[in-house]
Design a binder for these strands. Sequence first.
DNA 1: TTACACTGACTGACCAGTCAGTCACTTTGG
DNA 2: CCAAAGTGACTGACTGGTCAGTCAGTGTAA
Lengths: 266, 266
Amino acid sequence: MANSRDRAREAAATRGRGAGAIDDAGDAGQAGHAGQAGHTARAEARPPAAPEPAGPQAARGGGRPASRRRQKSAATREAILAAALDEFSARGYAAARLDDVARRAGVAKGTIYVHFRDKETLFEELVRAYLGPVINGVATAPGEDLSVRAFAERVVDTFVREVLGTRRKDVLRLVLTEGQRFPQLAHIHYREVVNRALPFVRESLKRAYERGEMKSDALVRFPQLLVAPGLMAVIWDALFSRFEPLDAAALMRAHLDLILEGEGAP
Amino acid sequence: MANSRDRAREAAATRGRGAGAIDDAGDAGQAGHAGQAGHTARAEARPPAAPEPAGPQAARGGGRPASRRRQKSAATREAILAAALDEFSARGYAAARLDDVARRAGVAKGTIYVHFRDKETLFEELVRAYLGPVINGVATAPGEDLSVRAFAERVVDTFVREVLGTRRKDVLRLVLTEGQRFPQLAHIHYREVVNRALPFVRESLKRAYERGEMKSDALVRFPQLLVAPGLMAVIWDALFSRFEPLDAAALMRAHLDLILEGEGAP
DNA sequence: TTACACTGACTGACCAGTCAGTCACTTTGG
DNA sequence: CCAAAGTGACTGACTGGTCAGTCAGTGTAA
């Protein structure tokens, strides 16, 4: 948002908040490649890594019949989200044009508004769709009372595999770079990701600290320190990889090395 | 840049590159509060922390006479840069309006174009003006063969004091969040900041490592790890300080604590 | 007088969002 | 089983507000 065209609508848009977003009518299942070519281009079936944007409340209201029409509609929604990720990542939110998103998704511009209230909602739904699944994974992780080393390795490995190794890193980067201008988005991300992951990490490390496994309580006070290099890597990649590529996985291993020097063995 | 209005000009703009930017005609001395109120508002004399945007090649061509007119012109340039920092920080590059920058600086919009070729150049000059000085400080730092602890503390303290403690943190944040869309800017920042600071840190730490002061060579291979939490703090502040303020200085101290556990004493 | 910083109304491109219309599919009821 | 009626996803030309950049004109220091 933030050009005044958007500002103008903001008051109106605010009314629609509070309860979940208006337009996740679709249950947005497994993408499924259901749609055959319509009468336009249609989404070039992006080959690598299906988005798996399983909506937060899938199958709401008791699961509608999933007719061919509904399947195709869900596929269209997926295509738009994937295209939006491409465009937003490449140009940034403000400079991305919905005309381009539509073209890339193989639909007409109006179709975007069938599935999403406006540009900002599209952005929010994009973040939810891609980052939602991981979140549920994080808080559910068992990992009761592993050694510091084992625990830290697990957290870092998960981060490397599930975020840095997928398109989610692009979504994360969008959150980091655009979040300031979308208080709504920053709030969601804080509530759903940060405020679930950090306390979890903090508690686990606290127990380890009390078991005497660590000399410093730094990680207990600032669990952020565990992933900080990961966030830096996401940004480095966008800014400097042309000049000096950064092996994020190696970076994270070195980081673990550094902060676990001598602490509890695997 | 990056909406097609800008893209359209891009080809033309490219011609102007290569040699230093066209419009740093001013030597942009010490800001000096020279300008008294003109016939409009005039820059509300922002009180805290004068920008000190001493241009890279100050006094080019042998120092022009610094008449009253030139002083006022330089002050106007400063005011525009300061206003641009405010607006870009608050709204992001794309959504910031030059009308607002002009109003905040107390000048007419046209005046901006007297001092800067276009919006993008204004942004680049802004970064140069604020981040340039530190850079020269970094590479000149003596610090030959301190202990790891002393050295790391010095680097981190400098970062906390000179960046996190000033408006430069806002400029740094702009680089981190907008850099991807400004290859030019990312390149400058890599060349002038990253590629000067990192090798310096790396070399110093390498010597310390060879002296046997550190168990792990992680910091030698990835000197980025030293400041990664600082970058995270800059972003955290913009996104989450409302929900959970982060004491960046304490974070950095904890970080040092963590990575220097037991290594060479001060 | 000259030169130059500065002014601000104006232009043209641009793009989010709209809406009347189309058409493929689904449902109904014969 | 098959039309006819109904539904809603989809289309794309169009509108209106926005804003970067321009330029003829003004005032003042040199």
